[in-house]
Design a protein around this nucleic acid. Structure first.
Lengths: 205, 205
DNA sequence: TGTACATCAGTGAACGCGCGTTCACTGATGTAC
DNA sequence: TGTACATCAGTGAACGCGCGTTCACTGATGTAC
């Protein structure tokens, strides 16, 4: 235990964990500072020793989310190397895996309405995460003849959008419509068709 | 004016319109029943003459959204006929156009957390909208040899997810990261590459 | 080791606020004769 | 056309609630000597 606090132990992180749990259970709307404090066994006022307020607490949860997300993407990327194709496909899978495994973080990052630019730390860690996918896209696009190569950032934006859409529409129970297919298969096949469209995998299998 | 009410004229619709404006301006979280009532020039209690409560008002806004959405998709579909390809591409564009033109409806439908199954009317109108895209996908997939044809519903799910992702990530100011490309171009090019991957448009232009 | 003092994490009470919802009411509109 | 009555959309006051935030405080922990 690195840094034992005075009374609680590590209230700061306990509050973040409580917030993540509540966000997961009730959505970004249902989360309240008071309830997070209560769950951490502490008075609401105590929160203000560690955070500026409600928004700041959510932002920190998102920041930690981007950090995990970036690590995961990076790990996936490296696991696919030296094949640019395998690396790229792995990052796509990592996106969905992250959304599934860390729903609280995911919601704090993408559905809570907090801006990635609200503080420099958050912006930096978000940029880093995005950078992994962009790097993977850039390397993969080297395999496309330059004259018919789309910008790598467009390429990665397509995959990001597809992944995000699959998560929002089919990997969460939100719209009540359950997925016609497992989200993992949906994303995998979608990326496959897309890459075939770019001429990066054989048109016929 | 079809159905003049007693005092207000048409309070029911005025409340929905106020709700849509507020949702557009402040997100689904920021919307309150009281404020919608105030904006319609009426006491909060008056809302209960027309709706069961806050959620019911949002659900009705979403229902009207699905209706407009379905009409728009259908119109786009028909404008592309008899070419299955043109019809399909037009529905993709219509998705984004709807999100842009009716942001309040879009948010009520996809970001407010209300379930599409909360009442049968809502479920019906949502199914109808989804059906248009699925029909367009099914017709288009007839042009793929049966042995390598993916299920049409998977096909339409891909496009739905891509469209939704583009809207959420790049067509709204939410994550603070503005789009590297116009969302319309992003979606258009993404769909183009995807269709090429299915062998539906020429691999070389 | 023991004592005096400084630090500061968490308390508990209080605040003002706006929320969604309820209720008995009132008064404008519509209808029957 | 005029009158008596029924309907019912909207009022206004009230409710209990939990929210985020503030403040002076207390008491456990850490530090100097």
């Amino acid at each position: 235990m690195p840094k034992r606090g005075y009374h609680h132990g590590n209230l700061r992180q306990a509050l973040i964990d409580a917030a993540l749990e509540l966000i997961t259970a009730k959505g970004p709307t249902g989360f309240t500072l008071s309830e997070a404090a209560k769950q951490a066994g502490v008075t609401p006022a105590a929160v203000y020793r560690h955070f500026e307020g409600r928004e700041d607490l959510i932002a920190e949860a998102a920041r930690q989310g981007y950090e995990i997300f970036g690590d995961l993407m990076n790990f996936a990327y490296e696991s696919g190397q030296p094949s640019a194709l395998a690396a790229f496909e792995a990052t796509g899978r990592a996106y969905l895996a992250f959304a599934r495994k860390y729903p609280g973080h995911y919601i704090a990052m993408f559905e809570s309405g907090i801006s990635v630019n609200r503080n420099p730390d958050l912006a930096a860690v978000a940029t880093r995460a995005r950078g992994v996918l962009e790097k993977a896209a850039a390397e993969l696009s080297e395999h496309i003849p330059p004259d018919k190569r789309p910008p790598a950032s467009m390429f990665s934006a397509h995959i990001w959008a597809l992944s995000h859409g699959v998560v929002e529409l089919f990997a969460r129970n939100s719209p009540g419509a359950q997925s016609p297919f497992p989200p993992e298969d949906l994303l995998e096949s979608g990326i496959g068709i897309y890459l075939r469209g770019l001429g990066l995998i054989a048109p016929d299998r």
